[in-house]
Amino acid sequence: MSEPQFVRARSVDHAIDTLKAAGGDGLIVAGGVVVSSLFNQRLASPAVLVDISRIKGLRYIKRTPNGLSIGALATHDDIHRSADVKAVAPLLTEIAEDVSCPRLRNRGTLGGSICTIGGQGDPATGLIALGATMQIKGPGGERTAHIEDFYKDAFEVDLAPDEIVERIDVPAPQTGARFAFCKLGPRNAMDFTQITVSVVMAPTGSGIRIGMNGVANAPNRPRATEALIATMNAGSINWTAVGKTLNGEISPQGDLVYSEDFKRHLALIGLRRAVERALARSKEAGGRA
């Protein structure tokens, strides 16, 4: 019943040093939502808890020449309210306002959500579709990782025990790019079993980036499906063919709510709806920045 030591990190380097000293037995706490849930279920017993929530300069959203830079501690609520996000990557605004519920959006951070697939991975799908990168810092210095490469397997991410995600860089989509987010679950909110799809499409034609969650062990980017759609006419996509390719790229597992087959079925429906919404949006908005 020994309690983990609680360390309030003063800086990113302090956090990294503390994690390093913990020798793999440290756990980062940002908003604390997922970590608390683990404790409540008695599923975690680290030696050290490293609270990064008070590190100055990790909670921000700013515009950069290339797009957006979002500090790891920015909450879903921050993102939802940000005029900059809305201007540069409104897809993230749309996703943020549908992440679980207000009281959890207020605490849950973007960095935490990426690392733990918190918020059921909704934000990760958008970041994948937008081609975001993560700035990660560890004892050996900083490195950049593409978010779609970050997820290795269930509960396995490309992050060493003494590394920290500092920020997420979101490149601005091309002017006139079309986007949409689609979430399919048994209810209208608060589902853990759900299929989520984000798409960002080129201003014209059918060039597309797709981020999905709920269809594999972790958020993923179905590249072959993207490539196939890109060869098709945006107005007449052959969804049967797309479905076949998509099926080869996803590996959903049945759970208490949906069977594997049904998840496969919904994955294609979700993708189709996201694409149709994206295309419809371009009509109604006449393309947007």
Binding site: G32, V35, S36, N40, D51, S53, R103, L104, N106, R107
Partner: peptide, 11 residues
């Protein structure tokens, strides 16, 4: 609004 059952008091 905050979910107090998923909030480490120390934070």
């Amino acid at each position: 609004s905050t979910t107090s059952c998923l909030a480490l008091a120390a934070q």
